[in-house]
Design a protein around this nucleic acid. Structure first.
Lengths: 188, 188
DNA sequence: TTCAATACTAAGCGAATGCTTAGATAAATA
DNA sequence: TATTTATCTAAGCATTCGCTTAGTATTGAA
C-alpha cells in the first residue's frame, strides 16, 4: 500500500555521521544535515524523530564502522601488546581525512557535551569504551606474569592515552603523534 | 568628559570565562553572557567587539589564572620529575568544580573548534601549550643523563597525556584518573 | 552652567535555529 | 480502477542567534 522510501536509511545515516564528525553536534544544523544527507527535513524527522535521534544513529554507525575497520583487526591479532600499538597507529589513520585529523567522534562528543549529552548516546559511548578497554586487557594479559591489578591499570591508562591522541591529533604533527605512541608503550 | 563604566572589565571577563568553560563556545549564547556577566549586550559589544572578542579575552584570562594557580607552582618547584606528577594532580583539582570535571578550557576549545577557531585564540592556545612543554622539558632535564631527544619526546608525551586527562576526567572516576597518572610516570 | 563625549537601557534587526503542517505523489491491495 | 497508506515537497511556525540602533543618562572640562 504505502509509497516507498526514496533513500536507504543506512546510507543517509553514514552521511549524517560524517557531518557530525567533522563539525560537532552543536555546530551541525538540521539544514546542514538536510543538505548532506540529500533528503528533506520531513524525511529526517519521520525516520529519526529529532536531531538527537539522528545523532544517536550516527554514533551507533560510527561504532560499527570503527569496529569493522580497526577494532576487529586488534581483536583477531595474536601479536600481544604490540597489536595494541598497531591499533593506535590504525586509529590515527582512521580519524584522518583530506582536511586533517578530526579526532574520534565519541571523544569529541564527550568533550563537547560532557554529561549533558543524550542519555542513550552516553550509554553507547560508555559501552564502546568498555569494549576497547576489555580488549586491551586481554592483549596485555597474554604471555605475562603481571598481576591482574597491574593489567587493569595499564588498560585504563591506554584508554586515556587514546583519548589524548584524539585531541592532540587536531593540534600536533604526525611526527609528534608517532613519538607519543612510542613513549606511551614504553610504560607498558 | 565621558561617563564612567559601571563594571570592571576583568570582573566580567572572569564571569564570561567561566560560562565558556562550563558550556563550550557554540553552546554559549550572547544572551547567556549578558546574564552571567551582569551587563547589557551593548556593553559587551562596546568593550569586546563581538562574541569572538569576549572568547579571546576569556582564553587569555584562563591562561593567567592557570599560570597563577598551578603552573607557577611547577616552575618554582625543585622536585625534578616528581613536580610534574604533582602538576598533573593539581591540574585535576583545577578543572573540577561542584558539578564535576569540566576539563581544560584550552583543550575543550581545540577539541570543539579544531583549526576553525579564531586565529588569535589558536595562537594563545599554542603559546600556552609550548610554555607548558618547555617547563616539562626543564624539569625532565634536571639530574639526568638522558639525551635531549629523549627528553623532548617525553615532554611531548606528557602534553598529550595531559590533554587525555582533560577529556577522560569528564567520563572517568577519580581512582581511574589517579591510576592513569601513576602509570604515566612509571618510565619517565 | 553649558556642552561634548562616552556609557547606559531597551527595543528590534535579519538570519538561522529545531521542528511542524498542508497538500501533492506514489505504491500496493481490494 | 478505486481506495488506502505512507511518502514526498515546500512553505511556515515560534524561538533564538549574533549584532545594531535610537534615545537617554552620566561624566568632567570649558
Amino acid at each position: 500500500m504505502p509509497r516507498k522510501k526514496s533513500y536507504i536509511e543506512e546510507e543517509v545515516i553514514e552521511k549524517a555521521m560524517h557531518t557530525f564528525w567533522k563539525k560537532g553536534y552543536e555546530a551541525t544544523s538540521v539544514r546542514d544535515l538536510e543538505r548532506e544527507m540529500g533528503i528533506n527535513q520531513f524525511s529526517i524527522y519521520a525516520s529519526f524523530t529529532n536531531k538527537d535521534g539522528i545523532f544517536l544513529e550516527s554514533v551507533k554507525y560510527y561504532k560499527t564502522k570503527a569496529t569493522k575497520e580497526i577494532l576487529n583487526k586488534l581483536i583477531n591479532s595474536n601479536d600481544g601488546v604490540n597489536s595494541i600499538k598497531k591499533y593506535f597507529k590504525d586509529f590515527l589513520k582512521f580519524v584522518k581525512d583530506t582536511e586533517g585529523y578530526k579526532g574520534c567522534l565519541l571523544t569529541n562528543t564527550i568533550n563537547e557535551l560532557g554529561g549533558k549529552a543524550n542519555e542513550q548516546v552516553v550509554n553507547e559511548i560508555g559501552q564502546f569504551s568498555t569494549l576497547i578497554r576489555d580488549t586491551f586487557f586481554k592483549k596485555l594479559a597474554t604471555n605475562t606474569i603481571k598481576s591482574k591489578e597491574t593489567i587493569n591499570k595499564q588498560a585504563n591508562y591506554l584508554i586515556v592515552a587514546l583519548q589524548g591522541l584524539s585531541v592532540a591529533s587536531k593540534m600536533l604533527g604526525k611526527k609528534q603523534l608517532d613519538d607519543f605512541i612510542e613513549v606511551t608503550f614504553k610504560n607498558i
